[in-house]
Amino acid sequence: MEAKFEKLLKILEEDARYSSSDIASMLGESEEKVAELIKEAEKEKIICGYKAIVDWDKVNDIHVTALIELKVIPQKNLGFEEIAENIMQMDEVESVYLMSGGYDLCVTVKGRSFKEVALFVAKRLAVMDNIESTATHFVLRRYKEVGVKLIESDKDDRGTYSF
């Protein structure tokens, strides 16, 4: 069952909108069993949510994303946990990762303009306790998002030659 469970997660990760009937066919399981497995995964927070991948650039010009590198002074006993938890509470923040390498936290922030995001960093993030420095990088164009190509569709480039 373990292998099937992982297969199920991979299928949903590819496209969360497959019907339970389709998934049942793919796994060779009953629809009830599939529903049960999905419910279990949701309950255990293994599946944390379902969202559409939207290319907002095709809709309007008021979507700005920035990637912010934060250097943080870790706290005794808590490390980076407390500050990460504080940052993730902010609505503007889309993701928070603890990183290896040149800086500590990677935060992506969404806003309606460069200025709005820059001010958010200056007024909310940079001033927090234990933040040593910030570096803001604005996203200019998105080519691929969570495995989905935004600028072209995958064309089947195989010719009709093979028997």
Binding site: D156, R158, G159, T160, S162, F163
Partner: peptide, 23 residues
């Protein structure tokens, strides 16, 4: 097989379950 491939080549937006080639 050739005959079908020839027809398919003239058409657009065909989903090919015909070829023996990994995707």
């Amino acid at each position: 097989i050739r005959k079908f491939f020839d027809i398919a080549e003239q058409m657009e937006n065909v989903i090919s379950l015909g070829v023996g080639e990994p995707d």
